[in-house]
């Protein structure tokens, strides 16, 4: 492979990624994503207002509350739907807009197109979700005043925050690849997305063999504070964090390979969509 070709591929992939990033972040499409991320932020705000005075002295409450909110609401709903909105439209949005052919009329390997769209969408998702997660984490500690800030800046607090950010980043990678693929395969990618959401929500109640087929099982293994999943959940040993991270990245790579295969066979027949 010549270096000139690599350079061209990089330049093309970045052009596609930049275009995708602008389409995702600097347009009206970002509104539903912003509404989604506003929810955990407003939860944190409400908590700051309503937290009983007695609990303001106990930092453990904030750690536990955030863990619960992150696992059961932020990860399962906010990150999930934000990724669905951003990634599913990477291809399907252009097909519905009848503008995908402009990308296909460029001297572009379809693998470069998939890579560019994925990277652009991933950056868009990270740009919105990572700061929102960090701000929510800080806001959860706000009612404790200076002690709360010290907790956030302490080694434990910082490592917790880093772990939560890593979980969000990995979730964006994995869910993103899945929704990008769904956008290529299905004329309505929201149907498989909703079915998968059902699967993800039901994961705590599934036997271990079936848990292994969900993303949230691996993502939960990376959480610094395990959430309480209720009396009906089937508890299993968490996956080793390195294995969980590697597994999610491997699944992402496999999904992207499938997306490239599909993109290479893609034809422009808008009327059928």
């Amino acid at each position: 492979m010549s270096s000139a070709r690599w350079l061209l591929w990089r330049r093309q992939a970045w052009a596609v990624a930049r275009h995708e990033l602008v389409r995702s972040v600097f347009s009206g499409r970002i509104v539903p994503v912003l509404l989604l991320v506003a929810m955990p932020l407003s939860l944190a705000g409400l908590r700051a207002l309503f937290l009983p005075a007695g609990q303001r002295l106990d930092l453990g409450h904030s750690t536990a509350d955030f863990a619960q909110m992150f696992a059961l609401f932020h990860l399962r709903f906010v990150v999930f739907f934000a990724c669905a909105v951003i990634f599913a439209k990477a291809f399907r949005g252009e097909i519905l807009e009848r503008s995908l052919h402009y990308s296909l009329l460029a001297p572009l390997d379809r693998a470069v197109l998939v890579a560019g769209k994925y990277v652009g969408s991933l950056i868009a998702a990270w740009l919105v979700l990572l700061p929102a997660t960090a701000i929510t984490f800080v806001l959860f500690h706000l009612p404790h005043g200076a002690a709360g800030f010290r907790q956030v800046l302490s080694a434990t607090g910082a490592s917790h925050l880093a772990a939560y950010l890593a979980v969000v980043a990995l979730a964006c990678c994995a869910y993103g690849a899945l929704f990008l693929l769904a956008g290529l395969y299905f004329s309505n990618p929201m149907v498989p997305a909703l079915l998968f959401l059902g699967w993800e929500v039901a994961t705590p109640f599934l036997p271990p063999a079936l848990k292994a087929l969900s993303f949230v099982h691996y993502l939960s293994s990376l959480l610094p504070v395990p959430p309480s999943l209720g009396p009906l959940a089937l508890l299993t040993r968490p996956v080793d964090p390195w294995l969980a991270g590697f597994g999610l990245l491997a699944a992402t790579a496999a999904l992207l390979v499938l997306a490239v295969r599909k993109a290479r066979r893609l034809e422009v027949t808008y009327a059928a969509d």
Binding site: R11, A15, R23, S27, S99, H101, Y102, A106, L108, Y270
Partner: peptide, 24 residues
């Protein structure tokens, strides 16, 4: 092509600029 559709929000300049960027 025959399609009378364009990427949403594109201006004439940005549309051509992106096409040329894809050509490297």
């Amino acid at each position: 092509t025959q399609y009378d559709s364009f990427p949403s929000g594109a201006t004439g300049l940005s549309f051509l600029r992106h096409a040329l960027a894809l050509h490297g």
